[in-house]
Design a protein around this nucleic acid. Structure first.
Lengths: 145, 145
DNA sequence: TTTAAATAAGATTAAATACTCTTAAATATG
DNA sequence: CATATTTAAGAGTATTTAATCTTATTTAAA
């Protein structure tokens, strides 16, 4: 089930690293993140520009610059990041691709799929970056291999 | 949530049409299916070749030939078609793309995602093409717009 | 004020996916 | 047997996504 694009996967891992391992400086460099996670520096940079434009990150140029969360980690929900990376209509898609699939004239799997999406959406809405960061810091969860 | 590729979406819609509107002849032509659903004939043909190779459809060439289900519609489950179209490892993927994500060293969303996938898998395993076909025939559910 | 360190922007290339086209093979029917 | 109808096979093209590269801009510190 390829649920997220590469942009979504890399973006999530990168922002979670930022959350899980806060530095002394207010900003963490993208180079550090991409090196630690073995991701392409340029690709992560591009993804982070988008998250900055969307108001999830803030960035600062020059020496000891880098990126930081725009809000405290307990006020950024997983769903905010996913929607920023995959599009605001992320949870509005019909499983078999029919346009305007809805209660009025549903596709044969509409009901089940609608409930599934709602549950995922709920979970993502309740899950803060802070809680995920703590999980990672606890060493029981990982961001790379 | 782009859960299925175009191959998966078109393939599902096409096989559901075949199930929902059985013809008098044992075989239905791909041309009829692609015309009715406004899908590319060549693309559906290619997708159906795969389903034939995987033993979900049977095909017959020549006049009044076409495709048909290889087994009765109540013995083909949605999961069979999805796995044939998207790959057998369809439900084995980590949300954020970590290889070997599992109970041993899980990613931070592993547990939730595992449960989600299991529920979807269960539903797809319980849902037969026959039951979806009936829904469509009842006119309350559609395959196109 | 020069240099180095960092992100911004966007052009460019590579790879994967989606789709189309052509030719071959099978088969029914006149 | 000739012709029309159908799928099989796979080459070819187009589009989208993924990833890389180059140049510009900002900023701190020597």
């Amino acid at each position: 089930m390829k649920t997220l694009s590469q942009v979504g996967k890399y973006g999530l891992r990168a922002i979670l690293y930022l959350v899980a391992y806060p530095s002394e400086n207010p900003y963490m460099s993208i180079r550090q993140i991409s090196d630690e996670l073995n991701l392409s520096f340029h690709f992560v940079t591009k993804i982070f520009r988008e998250l900055t434009a969307k108001g999830i990150l803030i960035s600062y140029r020059g020496p000891s610059g880098g990126v930081a969360l725009a809000r405290p980690a307990d006020q950024i929900m997983l769903i905010d990041v996913v929607k920023a990376l995959e599009g605001e209509d992320y949870f509005d898609k019909c499983l078999i691709g029919l346009p305007h699939c809805g209660t009025a004239k549903p596709c044969p799997v509409h009901e089940f799929w609608k409930e599934t999406k709602i549950k995922i959406q709920q979970n993502f809405t309740e899950t803060s970056l802070a809680s995920l960061g703590e999980k990672i810091r606890s060493q029981e969860f990982r961001l790379d291999d």
